[in-house]
């Protein structure tokens, strides 16, 4: 389904120089096999994003192997083992837009801006995470093998 990524494409028109190396996310089956940016994701940065309650927001809903993090969510599956259960491309799709895998999901779309209504002005037209942040998160999730 292409329309989802129109915002992404428009975004790259307006900010072409900065995003020049981004690839348009292409869905194959239930995965996005190709990285969104050329620079490899950094699992250390990815972990920091996942545990940050203002940035990744993941622990609002998920719990995971983060012994130093108190107060983790119970709305979603445990993140431990995510890298064993899913391929890199499947994880990327679920972060980019989990509704692609499950239309009824409550997991927010992290790399989509269209189809959202009444977004607060500070966030309007902005994705929850940048392409690079998504690659970092995916790289980190791939390390969660147990």
């Amino acid at each position: 389904m292409r329309p989802i990524f129109i915002a992404f494409v428009l975004g790259s028109v307006f900010t072409a120089p900065a995003l020049a190396q981004e690839t348009r996310p292409e869905i194959v089956g239930d995965a996005i096999p190709q990285p969104l940016v050329a620079i490899r994701g950094d699992p250390v940065r990815g972990r920091a994003i996942v545990v940050d309650r203002q940035v990744g927001l993941c622990l609002l809903c998920h719990s995971g192997p983060f012994p130093e993090q108190r107060l983790q969510g119970t709305l979603a599956p445990e993140l431990a083992g995510a890298g064993r259960r899913w391929s890199e491309g499947q994880l990327r799709l679920r972060i980019v837009d989990a509704a692609k895998a499950n239309p009824a999901t409550i997991m927010p779309p992290y790399y989509r801006t269209d189809g959202l209504v009444r977004v607060a002005s500070a966030y309007r037209g902005k994705t929850l995470l940048t392409a690079q942040q998504i690659e970092d998160v995916v790289a980190f999730l791939m390390t969660l093998r147990d």
């Binding site: 309650r53 969510g73 709305l75 409550i106 209504v117 977004v119 966030y123």
Partner: peptide, 24 residues
């Protein structure tokens, strides 16, 4: 209505997920 950048509705939390923990 699902709304906002998180694309959530009131019902999704208060009808479907009550009793669960949102973080703490």
């Amino acid at each position: 209505l699902r709304q906002g950048q998180l694309n959530l509705s009131c019902a999704q939390c208060h009808d479907d997920q009550w009793g669960q923990r949102l973080a703490g």
